[in-house]
C-alpha cells in the first residue's frame, strides 16, 4: 500500500521542493516501518535540511558530516533521493549484515565520511576537514548538521571555540533546533535558549531560518562570512509532517504500528 502511494508522488522536477520532500518522507516512513524501528522524530525534523543539502547545496568541493547520527535514516533517504543509494540499499536498513546501520557507519558508504552517533563529535571533525582544505588551498566547505540537544556536550563548545579562533570561514554548522532531546525538552533539560544568541556571543555569524523551508537554507548558505564559521540555526518540528508525531517525545524512540504507518502515509501523501 505504501509503495503505491510513494509511486503516486510524481515529482517532474527535483526543483519541486515540496514534492521531493513529500516523496522522501514517504520513503523514510516506509523504511522505518519495514525495519520496525523508531528514531522517526529527529529524522523527520532533519529531512528537509538534508534534502536541500544533498540536492542543492553540496558541490564536489564540499564535504558533509552528520553530527546528529541518530538521523541516519534521513541521511540515507536524502542519499537515495539524489541517487547515491538505491531502493535495495534502503531495504537493508537495520538488517543483519547491513551497511545501513541505525547510525552512520565507519565504512561502506562513500558519502559518509565519519561514523557518528555519540553526540558531540561532528563539529570538531568538520573543523579538521575545513582546516585541511585551507592548508591545501582547496575550495569548498565542510558542512556539519548538529542537533540542538547535542549542544549539551562540552566538546561542541570546544569545537566552536576552535573553529572561531582559527577563523574557519569554510566551515558551516547547521543546528536542527527541534526543541526535544532524549528525556525532555531542551529548555527543561539544560536550558541554553536562545541558542542563536550563544553562537553570536562567540562571535559567529549566525542566521535563523525555518528548517522546513529548503529554499531558506539554500539562500542562507549563500552567506560567506568574512570570519568563520557560519552558523545556521534551523527551527524545526520533531516528527514534522505527521501530526500525531509532531513535538512528541515518544517519537524519538517508538516504531510505528501498521495503523500508525497507514495514517502517517495518508497524511504525508495528501499534504
Amino acid at each position: 500500500m505504501s509503495g503505491s502511494r510513494l509511486e503516486a508522488v510524481d515529482c517532474p522536477s527535483v526543483a519541486d521542493l515540496a514534492c521531493r520532500s513529500r516523496k522522501a518522507k514517504l520513503r523514510l516512513l516506509q523504511m522505518h516501518f519495514e525495519s520496525g524501528v523508531g528514531h522517526l522524530g529527529g529524522n523527520l525534523s532533519s529531512l528537509d535540511l538534508l534534502l536541500a543539502i544533498y540536492h542543492d547545496i553540496l558541490t564536489s568541493d564540499d564535504q558533509f558530516v552528520l553530527s546528529k547520527g541518530h538521523s541516519a535514516g534521513a541521511l540515507y533517504v536524502a542519499l537515495w533521493s539524489v541517487g547515491r543509494l538505491t531502493d535495495d540499499d534502503l531495504k537493508q536498513f537495520h538488517r543483519d549484515g547491513t551497511r545501513m546501520s541505525a547510525h552512520p557507519p565507519a565504512q561502506g558508504i562513500e558519502d559518509v565520511l565519519f561514523a557518528t552517533g555519540s553526540l558531540g563529535h561532528g563539529v570538531g571533525l568538520a573543523a579538521g576537514l575545513a582546516m585541511g582544505r585551507r592548508f591545501q588551498r582547496r575550495p569548498g566547505r565542510a558542512i556539519c548538521l548538529t542537533s540542538d540537544g547535542e549542544w549539551n556536550e562540552g566538546s561542541m563548545w570546544e569545537a566552536l571555540i576552535f573553529a572561531k579562533h582559527q577563523d574557519l570561514n569554510n566551515q558551516v554548522i547547521i543546528v536542527d533546533e527541534n526543541g526535544l532531546q532524549g528525556f525532555g525538552s531542551t529548555t527543561e533539560v539544560a536550558n541554553i535558549a536562545p541558542l542563536a544568541d550563544k553562537f553570536r556571543a562567540f562571535g559567529c555569524t549566525t542566521l535563523q531560518i525555518n528548517g522546513h523551508d529548503q529554499m531558506a537554507l539554500i539562500e542562507a548558505m549563500e552567506t560567506r562570512p568574512e570570519e568563520g564559521p557560519l552558523v545556521i540555526v534551523a527551527k524545526t518540528i520533531k516528527g514534522s509532517g505527521v501530526s500525531f508525531m509532531e513535538n512528541r517525545m515518544e517519537w524519538h524512540y517508538l516504531p510505528m504500528t501498521a495503523a500508525q504507518y497507514e495514517s502517517a502515509c495518508v497524511e504525508v501523501a495528501n499534504t
Partner: peptide, 27 residues
Amino acid sequence: DRFINAGVAEQNMVSVAAGLARQGFRA
C-alpha cells in the same frame, strides 16, 4: 601555521586531527 595550539580542549584536538587525517594529512 601547521603547528596548532588547540587549547585546553583535548577532545576537540583529537577530532580535528581525525578530520585532518581524513583529508590526507599526517596529523
